[in-house]
Amino acid sequence: MSTADDENWTGGFYELCLALGPADDGNLDRAVRALWRAAGVEGCRVRGIDAAGLVDVELGAAALHAHGHLLGSLALPSGARVVCGGFVSRYDDVDTLELYLPLGSLVRVDRRIGAFPFDDHSGAESLTWRAALDRWLADIAAIVYREVPFQRAVIGFEVDEDRDFTGDKRYAATLTPGPNGLEYDPANT
């Protein structure tokens, strides 16, 4: 799976979004390193300037701030390799770190994904493949949480951390700290 193949980056993104809390470059640096390690991401590349292709950079908060998106690849639980990326959003002095899996890459290794989320099989039927992916991403989040506690994790298609996912119909899975550790609420639609 090549990070340089533009077709891998099409179709939108399936994401693990970690709401880290107050902006803090030291915390962000620990979190991105823990996330890359927990997900088994190989490489840390950025798009080169002036069509120079992809360039290797050192993983960390400085690279996120300087380049916006960090690119790599990882192995899914099935063993299939896909490209992935990460970025940070700093809004109202709060850091949100995201790991994303492009649907263009995912569909190449799992045809059930089809044209998610835009086809007839994108509702509850898509949980046949999403549930396992969500659980795996939740397990990654739990590993990160042990090293860098966060306020909440949201998992799903182009999730927006600010949305309310507590209703009866949840298109995203969530992880929130509770008295007995992280509490996982799976997507159900």
Results as ranks from 00 to 15, higher is better:
Gly114Ser: 14
Asp119Ala: 03
Ile140Cys: 03
Pro117Gly: 05
Arg135Gly: 05
Tyr145Asn: 07
Ala141Ile: 05
His121Ala: 15
Ala142Ile: 06
Gly178Ala: 14
Leu133Tyr: 06
Ala141Lys: 02
Gln151Phe: 05
Arg130Ala: 09
Val148Asp: 07
Phe116Gly: 06
Ile155Asp: 03
Thr176Pro: 00
Arg146Phe: 00
Gly167Leu: 03
Leu127Pro: 00
Glu147Ser: 14
Gly123Arg: 11
Leu133Asn: 05
Asp164Arg: 08
Ala131Asp: 12
Phe157Trp: 15
Leu133Ser: 05
Ala172Pro: 11
His121Thr: 10
Gly178Asp: 09
Arg130Gln: 13
Val148Tyr: 04
Arg152Met: 14
Glu147Asn: 07
Phe157His: 14
Ile143Gln: 15
Pro177Leu: 12
Glu161Ser: 12
Leu175Glu: 03
Pro117Thr: 08
Leu137Met: 14
Tyr171Pro: 12
Asp162Trp: 13
Trp136Arg: 02
Pro177Ile: 14
Ser126Leu: 03
Leu137Cys: 07
Trp136His: 13
Tyr145Lys: 01
Arg135Leu: 14
Thr174Glu: 07
His121Met: 09
Glu161Leu: 09
Leu133Met: 13
Ala142Cys: 08
Gly178Lys: 09
Leu127Phe: 07
Gln151His: 12
Arg163Lys: 12
Ala141Ser: 06
Gly178Arg: 10
Ala173Leu: 04
Pro179Phe: 00
Gly114Arg: 11
His121Gln: 13
Ala172Gly: 09
Gly123Ala: 14
Ile113Arg: 04
Gln151Asp: 15
Asp160Val: 12
Thr128Asn: 08
Phe157Pro: 00
Leu137Lys: 04
Gly178Pro: 06
Val148Lys: 06
Thr174Ile: 09
Arg146Asp: 15
Val159Tyr: 00
